[in-house]
Design a protein around this nucleic acid. Structure first.
Lengths: 214, 214
DNA sequence: CGGTTGATGTAAACCGCTTTCACATGCGCT
DNA sequence: AGCGCATGTGAAAGCGGTTTACATCAACCG
């Protein structure tokens, strides 16, 4: 499998856009075998260059994974933002849509999701990556803010805590039931999407955030 | 670092309990660098034996990780069972205790937890491992059953769904906020334990599973 | 235009890991 | 005491990953 992308297609000594080709190859391999399932030399082979070439673009294998994660967080934040859609038509429905966007991302981009949450090495010293992940969580945080604002006077739950609960529930379901199988994986009586929607509804109902009876 | 354990301490040709020593060494290395962060030869070195010795006990590196995961699931199930404590003093409190036991395990045995949920390879063909993981989930499932039984007549939630929600919430919090840092990690305004307890309370309150007002 | 410079890719050497083999050791059973 | 099987060794073959010194090329500049 070559990833030399048509324009300048590698008819010459230089590749042309090796950096992007390496990222694309890494995405495929991570999707197939996880963040630990490929080597720096292997992506080089997939891109049709010598094993030493990638070192011109990334300090090492970890830096490549970190870049995959950073780009993933950017698209992730955009997806969540689109799902949230400024809280329309109403906060509860918007949060459900946001949850669906969350799982949809994990499903469409399992490689990015894995690089983001199971990189296999620290990956906390990368400032750009940190900023990207902050942006993604920011969407959830703002959604929780808006939803909590609906809550009547006293006893209003702390928005940060609500945001963390929403995130944990979504991540828990994505991590357990989407992507490459792990040990805990088991057959579900419903789709992960339905499972998450039900969980979010139950949670938010208790907070009095929706108009439903109870 | 040697793992030759004091009683026959390796004064002789044979190790004495190499199998356990290899598992112990693997646990240390997984805790430090993740399931992908060690080689078969390296655990052999740590145990003070030749690189070929481990093959007498495990088919390959993956089999070693799978065994670490299996033993982890056994202790995990026992911990959850102890937390649940047959639903005493009452189902809601018992589920909170179960949640605390969940996070406590992830904290005390980060290596086991990682091997169980992020092994880095399929690990679903191992029957013994599957059984062990079933047993662990069974505890959560029974807790959800018992809790749901308290619910008044119609509108009773499906226990399986509740079990999955509880598991997802606990796993989400453990995965995001306990263990070696990942990208999504951020500073919490509260301990993971308090975060989970609050989340479980909010969730169960909505189901009418506790006696609290609202 | 021609030369220089820096970015990009290569070739090959080096190193460690994996796996297998024949062989050594000694524990436990009779 | 002696036998047999489980367990550990040593060496070697083969791979694959990483690294260093060198090759190529594009862009810039006088």
């Amino acid at each position: 499998m070559r990833f030399t992308n048509s324009p300048p297609g590698r008819d010459s000594y230089h590749h042309g856009n090796l950096r992007e080709a390496l990222i694309a190859a890494a995405l495929v391999m991570i999707a197939e075998r996880g963040p630990a399932g490929f080597s720096f030399a292997e992506v080089a082979r997939a891109a049709g260059v010598s094993p030493a070439a990638p070192y011109r673009h990334f300090r090492d294998r970890n830096a490549l994974i970190a870049e995959v994660a950073r780009l993933g967080f950017e698209r992730f934040a955009a997806d969540l933002e689109a799902g949230w859609n400024d809280g329309r038509p109403d906060p509860v429905t918007a949060i459900e849509n946001c949850g669906r966007a969350y799982l949809s991302f994990a499903r469409r981009e399992p490689a990015s999701y894995a690089a983001m949450f199971e990189p296999g090495f620290p990956l906390e010293d990368d400032a750009a990556l940190l900023r990207a992940s902050e942006a993604a969580f920011g969407v959830i945080r703002r959604a929780a803010d808006a939803a909590c604002a609906v809550h009547p006077g006293p006893g209003r739950p702390p928005a940060m805590m609500v945001a963390l609960h929403l995130w944990a529930m979504a991540h828990g379901i994505a991590s357990l039931f989407i992507g490459r199988p792990s040990a805990g994986r088991r057959r579900l009586p419903m789709s992960p999407e339905d499972l998450l929607e039900a969980g979010l509804l139950v949670y938010m109902q208790s907070l009095g955030l929706n108009g439903t009876q109870r």
